[in-house]
Design a binder for these strands. Structure first.
Lengths: 173, 173
DNA sequence: GAATGCATGTAAAGAGTTACATGATTAA
DNA sequence: TTAATCATGTAACTCTTTACATGCATTC
């Protein structure tokens, strides 16, 4: 139940309503972490309210409910944070393609891996820009900065690995 | 529909029955790429048969069906391989935790990140062993070797990033 | 007053998990 | 003959996606 914990985490940072949660989900998490639309978020919030993990801390002008995390909610969030990662089944399409790449013929493999390298490099450039902005703003040690660093390293890995594969394939000639 | 393409990829490598596919899924893909049990695999094979992506190429001793990929199946597999990755929503619990780490207090952050570093290092050691075996067996340039290399680099990244975060957190003191 | 954004829902269908269920073959 | 492995299925439930639906508030 990652959706539940994603919502707990966002609410632990800032109490907010379902609409704001949906937008924040889209902006911060749906890039590389997790994704969910409002049609999944609203019902889940109701269930979490029923389970006592969150509570209504305020009501907006037109009846919107602002949710905050309760003590049991914080306990559950912490428990999840420290729970073993291996328990959840993997869903990684990039790695899946890696494992199935032998189903392509050699020219196709070269084309695909070359494409991967180019796309990864574009991502690195983009994250580099975001990091530079953060550093200029003096956010050298914030958690957002840590996450960005992970992203940069990850896409650099994809790029470098792809280039390495291309080199190895050259050696066969 | 990644399950469908995972099955296509496995069958493109070797024609086999649902039982073997289930085991191979478990052994090769469910570590870091994708997971599925037999209760999902058998019905999907029937649908793929109905869609003409696979065909029965042989029957085992006790009526088991050995499936192979058809030409349309190969075309579909290739199409998927080259389709943009960005289309599929991310499901990465590790990265999700990264983004929510600010919900923990500082001592907990240190403990968790330290734990991540240790676990990642263990994975690196394990993959290193597998790679050494491969190299000794003369599989220097096989696709399995490429996938293993990716795994090693990925867990080394998690380990090194975690250690870097710990260092950055030290600087605050 | 019309368009945009805020705010919340439900319904149906597809994908994935867990549990239940059965029978044939092979090795000990 | 009995235990393990081979081999295949269904049912119920949860999670996710896509589409349909509504009404208020603000700004132009």
């Amino acid at each position: 139940m990652s959706l539940r914990h994603a919502l707990l985490g966002l609410l632990a940072d800032t109490p907010q309503n379902g609409y704001d949660l949906t937008k924040r989900f889209e902006r911060t998490l749906s890039g590389h972490a997790w994704s969910a639309g409002h049609s999944q978020i609203y019902p889940e919030l109701k269930r979490m309210l029923g389970d006592g993990l969150i509570e209504v801390v305020d009501e907006g002008s037109r009846g919107s409910k602002v949710y905050g995390v309760t003590d049991p909610g914080r306990t559950e969030l912490r428990r999840w944070m420290f729970s073993p990662l291996g328990d959840t089944p993997p869903r990684n399409e990039f790695v899946l393609r890696l494992f199935l790449i032998s189903s392509l013929d050699l020219p196709d493999v070269r084309t695909l891996v070359d494409q991967m390298a180019a796309e990864s490099d574009k991502e690195v450039t983009q994250i580099d820009g975001a990091i530079k902005e953060m550093d200029d703003a003096g956010l050298r040690r914030g958690y957002a900065r840590f996450a960005a660093e992970f992203g940069r390293r990850y896409f650099a890995l994809q790029r470098d690995w792809s280039r390495w594969v291309l080199e190895e394939l050259e050696k066969d000639d």
